[in-house]
Design a protein around this nucleic acid. Sequence first.
DNA 1: CTGAAAGCGCTAACAT
DNA 2: ATGTTAGCGCTTTCAG
Lengths: 303, 303
Amino acid sequence: MSDVARAAGVSAATVSRALRGEPGVSEATRRYVTEVAKRMRYAIARDASSLAGGRRYAVAVLAADVGRGDLLAGAEGALRGAGYDVLLYVLRDADARARFFEELPLGRRVDGVLALAPDLADAEVAALASLEVPVARVREDDLRASVRTAVDHLVGLGHRDVALVLADDESYDDVLVAAGLEVRPEWTVWSSPTVAGGEQAVDALLDGERPPTAVVAVGGEVALGLLLRLRRDGREVPRDVSLVALDGGDLVRAVGVTAVEVAWRERGEHAVSALLAGLRGEEAESEPPAPRLVVRDSTGPVG
Amino acid sequence: MSDVARAAGVSAATVSRALRGEPGVSEATRRYVTEVAKRMRYAIARDASSLAGGRRYAVAVLAADVGRGDLLAGAEGALRGAGYDVLLYVLRDADARARFFEELPLGRRVDGVLALAPDLADAEVAALASLEVPVARVREDDLRASVRTAVDHLVGLGHRDVALVLADDESYDDVLVAAGLEVRPEWTVWSSPTVAGGEQAVDALLDGERPPTAVVAVGGEVALGLLLRLRRDGREVPRDVSLVALDGGDLVRAVGVTAVEVAWRERGEHAVSALLAGLRGEEAESEPPAPRLVVRDSTGPVG
DNA sequence: CTGAAAGCGCTAACAT
DNA sequence: ATGTTAGCGCTTTCAG
């Protein structure tokens, strides 16, 4: 930096101020210094800058797995754009995770933490808080909104008999009711999140005396299983039955299944903006972007 | 650090040496200092350490997209294990990429660069080299080995009539010949890398007078397209025709298609070991891990 | 084997 | 608006 200062005929302090956009430098000087620096291919040494200034210009990004690639990419882009480096920590398995939270290797290394790991235990959240830097999290998704979006789409196409293939033991009867649809217990089935699970669900659903005209399935594997089985049984999608997947990723995109998809990239960017607010000392809480309907070829008007 | 030094009754220099495993400290002292440091929850400040020592304990990881999640995860794990921080740079689109290589924001920030972007231009490689730190790359895959593995598997099952559905305009006739198989021009077709492309390929392949008994397809979409169309046409897989995908990812895993998969995680780890060698000043070149056959339900004995 | 002293390259007060 | 002066928290000679 002193080289640049000498070349520009100013002091190092001025170079520092100019390059960082700090106030207290005339525009002319700033422009000139910036130009000289670029010509000399000079860039501020982050270590020294951090050491002297206290700010680290880096954010730790915790990823449970890197499967949701767009989430990570979105976060990285937004952070980079805001001038922060991204320190990636992959919390692959329970082991790596335990080690991470035990060592908590972030002390004095980052200005903030972005946790893309959706399911943090209370103790883990507390551990992050103990770092005394802002923390932002991407939370587990609330499927309710997605189900609503899917059902609305189907209702718009004239469907009244809508079945749900769910994981776990959730129930979204209320969503169906709110949409003015009839609720029949045999129209909600729970399935393992696999292709085989989806295939089996077809039996449970369409063998009854009053088969639904549309099915909403959680997850790409299940949706794919449904699709495969329907086709093999000679049923046309969407002519005989419409199909909407909830967040199926590449799987359903590839086969043209209409889906309600989480906007992962935008979620990442949204989380970053929350973190940046925290870094500014603000508290700006806002809603993450809603899941969006992507209409493909598996839904059509009720036959 | 001076606090720890005081508490341990030694000098800061000794603490530094002890904590970094530098020689020149008695085992007893090292043990004691380490213990005191842990008790005080002290960790060396990376910035100061880097500034004073010249080493940065960080590696830049360049990812073209984060789709190959396991590649990134493998690299991260290996680097972390070796004591390096991971600075992630996502080179999403041409724009981000151009900007990155123009600014080349790595100067004096990392000890090495790991380029997971498979298709670096010569100028980009040169730019990285200009950083004067070790660079390791994960290269584009050579499909030839994968094709060979797939064909060997099929031959082992008794197949003699093997078709290839390829992207681009490659040819692997030589692989077929080497396996002692008959080569018929109509058994090699080129397809767009989509489900639709795979579906079309079925027509080209199985309508002839002598349909192959097995098909090798590049990519998950194509393989999935083949599978879907075969089923719809009433052909059983693998009874009527066996199917092997080359690197289809989740798509083919989900539907149980036998595949030759790139060992992405291991590729990441391998690349890191090459980089670490470079950081040690060595040159150790070794072969990346070979793609591996994962037998699922889409291949069976001929006939 | 250990300690003292001199920076590493910056930034932040304080002057001017 | 700019320059000067102290460090930031370590690592590294160089002594002892």
